[in-house]
Design a binder for these strands. Structure first.
Length: 649
RNA sequence: GGUUCCGUAGCUCAGUUGGAUAGAGCAACAGCCUUCUAAGCUGUGGGUCGAGCGUUCGAAUCGCUCCGGAAUCACCA
């Protein structure tokens, strides 16, 4: 039982003894005493004045006396206004070092989905945040004793993949990662950008054609003019709205006009130019390609397999650098048909609505939302349908007590609807689905946009972190006398530590800003600072061993301690609470803030008090043990964040 | 326009089940290496916690109204 719990229990008893009234233990608010005031724990007695019918001071003093008598750990107390500040004995704090933190037993079984990339372009900073949060949450839940299954759902199909494929086919000259020297995901991403460029050029060309056409004398009938107007309307919006249905519509109306054979030669010329430009347009071709993919066209499937393979090779490298892994990877090409049967069952059961055009909808108006499409009129699935299918499949496969989806906050609405649809379909575990909604990583100017080339590429950023770590280490002369492989290892640890900590110290649900012009710090509240403190402690422990000093296995509770040591002990003893809190809140930032506070406090201790140079053997032993336990907490906390710590740096 | 989220120091962020004088880091300035790693430590300056009203012993925290920003509201995923 934690000391807080013990104190609150005795507090309730004291109230009952003094004022003969029982209170609920959960209403007692106990907190750590402010640093500038004497005391370790504080209870505010304001809420109990109605019961005591005495002044705040009087009440606090009476309760304080009772508590001091009933708990040997409490040495003394102070009362300031209505605040009862309890002072615990030094020996209590010293013995905190002897507590072995065991994972809290739990039978919960959590499933967590994260990463979930598209296979048409490389990973960027947003993905990094997703991956780091997912990995860290997994570790935190494990530390809370839960069984965790990490899954990835790769979006490997759809129009965006076809865009890259088409561009590669048309303008790629058969290049591969081997011949181009590019990482597979980057190569595919390059073609995705190429597609966009070519598509824009095509639209601009069409737009000009229409503009020229407007200058021609018209020779159409009334109906044909009406068709023309529709065409021009489309033309005006063509630059941002060109899509497959539009393209098809224009082609059809042009062909009708052409078939009337009343046009001038110039007009026939125009129509032919537009039609061929449209049919040749990248967008039209990509859509045709998607249709072929869905029909199972052999060549297209082969190309798709080849290019996705490149992307996976690239992703694997990035995942490995980031230290991310999964227990299972799902591919959307295998799951996108799922959910359809469930939806149809829902129709039969009357939970869902089928409209005249055969499309299927969930009516969520009674939940304050709109109707939501689940099956298109042609019977095909949409995103929501797939999610329903995979959720049911996973529930059957893993029977998780909790299904966590690490997905950006732009999909908050989707998940709201998702849960409600599952509820409507009668799956009572709908409330076990938790959308861990994380905020966007933004640039100082706003959102990252791939079209404007402002996306921060994951691999580039990682390389940059390594380079910075290297130059800083060299400047500080930290790497002298180390082997080349050790240097490489340390640089990677530190660079990656800076990046990961930078991201994870921010509350996941908040949007955060990354400024590419200012490199990520290595001083202050940063990963390297924490790693550095760990290295410092390791150095002391090394030196102790060299001097033949053995770190005691247990703290001697007769050791006298200073305020600095006590502060450090307090933070160390808070560790278990923090792990539980981070698990409940699904928030790695709680761990990050904790370990920073711990390290800061340790540095104060390190600076103020001698350790190996302490002549009093009892004190030396205690400080060595304190240092050792601190280093273990640091290492473990950082492990929960997915960050490694070096023994020297 | 509807819904949801956000607004704390010049910048990046803590602090929010209501508690004492709102905290860190960066940046700026001033100190500390013959002493266990100076990626460290100490100090100075920097705030209308977006604004107003309310709830109460007490509000950055809760409620209402504004102001500013973001996301979302597809037979896209």
């Amino acid at each position: 039982m934690t000391i807080e719990k013990q104190i609150t229990e005795k507090f309730c008893k004291a109230i009952e003894t003094l004022y003969s009234q029982a209170i609920d233990i959960n209403t007692v608010q106990i907190s750590k005493t402010r640093k500038d005031i004497r005391g370790d724990f504080t209870i505010n007695v304001f809420p109990y004045l109605k019961i005591s019918r005495k002044s705040p001071e009087q009440t606090a003093i009476e309760i304080g006396k009772q508590l001091t008598d009933s708990l040997p750990e409490i040495d003394s107390f102070d009362v300031i206004k209505g605040f009862l500040n309890l002072v615990l004995s030094d020996s209590f704090w010293v013995q905190q070092l002897n507590n072995k933190n065991e994972p809290i037993p739990s039978r919960k079984n959590a499933l967590i989905e994260f990463s979930s990339p598209n296979t048409n372009k490389p990973l960027h900073l947003g993905h990094i945040r997703n991956n780091l949060i997912g990995h860290s949450i997994s570790e935190i839940l494990k530390a809370n004793g839960q069984t965790v299954t990490k899954v990835n759902l790769v979006n490997d199909r759809g129009i965006h993949i076809c865009k890259s494929m088409l561009a590669w086919q048309k303008w790629g000259n058969g290049e591969s990662p081997e011949t181009s020297g590019m990482k597979g995901d980057h190569l595919v991403g390059k073609h995705y950008v190429e597609f966009d460029k070519k598509s824009k050029a095509n639209v601009a060309y069409l737009f000009n054609l229409f503009k020229e056409y407007k200058k021609l004398p018209a020779s159409f009938t009334k109906e044909q003019i009406a068709a023309q107007i529709g065409m021009f309307e489309t033309a005006e919006r063509i630059s941002n709205e060109l899509n497959y249905p539009t393209v098809k519509r224009i082609i059809n109306s042009l062909k009708i006009i052409q078939s009337k054979q009343i046009n001038t030669n110039q007009e026939i010329d125009f129509i032919e130019q537009v039609v061929s430009a449209l049919i040749e347009s990248p967008l039209y071709s990509a859509q045709e390609m998607l249709l072929k993919w869905e029909e199972g066209d052999k060549d297209i499937i082969n190309l798709w397999n080849k290019m996705n393979g490149w992307v996976y090779e690239g992703f694997d490298i990035t995942y490995k650098e980031l230290g991310i892994s999964f227990d299972k990877t799902y591919y959307e090409s295998q799951t996108y048909g799922l959910g359809k049967d469930e939806v149809l069952k829902g129709v039969t059961a009357g939970a869902l609505i089928k409209k005249e055009d055969n499309s299927v909808w969930a009516d969520l108006t009674d939940e304050g939302l709109d109707e939501k499409l689940l099956l298109r009129s042609d019977g095909t699935s949409v995103y929501m349908t797939q999610d329903i299918g995979t959720a049911i499949m996973r529930k059957n496969e893993f029977n998780a007590d909790e299904m966590i989806y690490v997905v950006g906050n732009e999909q908050n609405y989707h998940f709201q609807v998702f849960r409600l649809v599952l509820k409507k379909l009668g799956y009572e575990w709908y409330d076990k689905i938790f959308h861990l909604s994380y905020g966007m990583v933004e640039l100082p100017e706003g959102k990252m946009k791939s079209r404007e080339g402002t996306v921060v590429d994951a691999d580039d950023l990682i390389e940059e972190m390594y380079a910075t770590a290297k130059s800083i280490s060299q400047e500080l002369g930290k790497l002298e006398g180390h082997s080349e492989s050790e240097i490489q290892k340390t640089i990677k640890m530190v660079g990656m530590g800076a990046l990961k900590y930078f991201i994870l110290k921010v509350d996941p649900k908040k949007n955060m800003v990354f400024n590419p012009k200012e490199s990520i710090d290595f001083d202050g509240n940063t990963g390297p600072f924490i790693q550095y403190t760990h290295a410092r402690i390791c150095s002391i422990i090394r030196k102790a061993k060299e001097a033949g000093i053995v770190i005691p296995g247990k703290a001697d509770d007769k050791t006298t301690i200073t305020e600095t040591e006590k502060s450090l002990l307090k933070i160390i003893s808070d560790f278990d609470n923090i792990v539980v809190e981070a698990g409940e809140e699904l928030n790695p930032a709680i761990i990050a803030n904790y370990v920073y506070a711990l390290v800061k406090e340790y540095n104060l201790f390190y600076h103020n008090l001698p350790i190996l140079k302490e002549s009093d053997k009892t004190k030396q032993d205690f400080r060595l043990l304190l240092s050792f336990v601190a280093s273990e907490k640091i290492k473990y906390s950082m492990h929960l964040l997915g960050i490694e710590v070096p023994e020297r740096m």
